[in-house]
């Protein structure tokens, strides 16, 4: 599956380690939350980068002890209408998680902007849509009312702030 990161298709340097595969000594890997729990002893001193996929029913507090070691968190969209991962992403950002946050599953261009606004930074997508469609979709609405939902580096105006600055 192609990855979109920083506004363009990008290679995926990460290797998914399924629950029945042994954990390699090196390399950037991601595991399930169950695996992270059970093999934390080994994983906490993993030589490469470490990531985890968490179900969208997970409580954010559950991840708190691991956050310092993680540099990729994958949140699933089992259906694009299932919006739980938006809140979970937002919570993780509020908890201070600063590394890559990836959306996977039913990720479509029309939801890309919202995903970026709540803190997602990479996207596992299908190859159904060309790059321009994704780029355009993420830029359609350039001004937003919600405070604190404008992602860094995006040319998006936070309307209430802009009004206040002007008055």
């Amino acid at each position: 599956m192609p990855i979109i990161k920083d506004g363009a298709f990008a290679p995926d340097p990460w290797v998914a380690i399924t629950d029945d595969q042994p954990i390699p000594a090196t390399g950037d890997i991601w595991v399930s939350l169950a695996r992270l729990d059970s093999d934390w002893g080994t994983l906490c001193s993993h030589a490469g980068e470490l990531g985890v996929e968490v179900p969208n029913t997970t409580k954010a507090e559950k991840l708190k002890p691991y956050l310092g070691k993680l540099s990729l968190i994958l949140l699933p969209f089992p259906a694009y209408t299932d919006g739980r991962a938006y809140s979970l992403a937002r919570l993780l950002r509020e908890e201070g998680y600063i590394h890559d946050l990836r959306a996977r599953g039913n990720v479509l261009p029309d939801q890309l902007q919202f995903m970026k606004q709540v803190g997602f930074t990479s996207f596992e997508v299908t190859d159904r849509f060309p790059a321009e469609v994704w780029t355009k979709a993420a830029q359609h609405i350039s001004a937003v009312y919600q405070e604190g939902y404008t992602e860094p580096h995006a040319a998006r105006t936070a309307i209430w702030e802009a009004r206040r600055a002007r008055s």
Binding site: Y80, T81, D82, G83, Y86, S87, R90, Q111, Q113, F114, M115, Q117, V118, I141, V144, Y145, Q146, Y149, I159, W160
Partner: peptide, 13 residues
């Protein structure tokens, strides 16, 4: 009205 318009977190409730 403004706050809820295209709220990025609460559009797929």
């Amino acid at each position: 009205r403004q706050w809820s318009s295209l709220h990025p977190e609460f559009s797929y409730l």
